[in-house]
Write a protein that binds this DNA or RNA. Structure first.
Lengths: 155, 155
DNA sequence: TCCGAGTTGCGTATCAGACGCATCTAGGAA
DNA sequence: TTCCTAGATGCGTCTGATACGCAACTCGGA
């Protein structure tokens, strides 16, 4: 896939996600404000799993009056609607993810960069039965940790 | 393995980890204060991946004068010495782990509970080659997300 | 036993995230 | 198209987690 085609595919995917948001929001009876659209579009356009503050700064470029509050509230609303997921076990300093398809993560232990990767083989991995005793299972994914190329260069 | 035998095995494992700390600390030339020993022992005795504040409260029971500061400083020092690892991509609200052996995590999406589980099969999983382009690979583990038994009961 | 580099705990600063409330607006009703 | 109100926004403020400077303290080698 060429540079141009990849870019086009990404654009189409963003629009698909936005359309899904529009449908789900209508269904749930929540209003589609400009702020919400911009916040979701920002998140849906990246694979970098930004935190709330990063999204805030990006949206602020196009919409100088947004407040960080609205970003937080919108992200958790999107989460409650099932439109985004979160990374990490904590509710503090959470990172968000608008990619609902099965996928896996590469995490840089130094700078915190996170990138998605796909793998049919890993999607099919079998969780041991005993894990079911701990609670229900929503999903399972692989987390690969390492030092990203940029941090290796900075060593 | 019986209740009693399991308890004994856990105690031996904690002592093994403490002995490792003593050796590494001497090698690195850092002092082994009572605070550091208690903090490490607390972390080495649990599989619950506590955050700094949880460790602080536990250590405080036995040592009322410890400060939360010392807990933070000690945890990151242990991390720098390679004696503990962290969960999650962020440096904020991090959770710590003194189990250096390969293992996997079950994470409750509601309450943040984390439990370890082992699996020979999952330890052996193959990461796709393309991931190597993102950076070096330190380790890979599976993260299973779900609703833990306690939270299911509270629904 | 003594001494100094390293460590601790306190006070305080900073930053992420959340909440109350007055103001504003999306979007259905007329 | 205009009107109206439930729901959303943004500001000021609060809380809670984490970090830092510094004076007092302590580990561990001489």
């Amino acid at each position: 896939m060429g540079e141009r085609a990849a870019h086009e595919a990404a654009r189409v995917e963003v629009e698909r996600r936005v359309a899904h948001l529009v449908a789900v929001a209508k269904e749930a009876g929540v209003k589609l404000t400009h702020q919400r659209l911009e916040i979701f579009r920002e998140l849906a356009s990246t694979e970098a799993h930004p935190d709330a503050d990063t999204i805030f700064r990006a949206v602020q470029q196009r919409m100088p009056t947004v407040s960080i509050d609205t970003v937080y509230r919108t992200l958790w609303m999107l989460h409650d609607l099932g439109l985004v997921t979160t990374l990490g076990p904590s509710r503090h300093a959470v990172r968000f993810d608008a990619n609902l398809a099965p996928h896996h993560h590469y995490v840089c232990v130094r700078c915190g960069l996170v990138r998605d990767f796909d793998s049919e083989a890993l999607n099919a991995l079998q969780v041991p039965d005993k894990v079911g005793q701990l609670g229900s299972i929503i999903d399972a994914h692989v987390e690969v940790r390492g030092l990203c190329a940029a941090c290796q260069g900075a060593e």
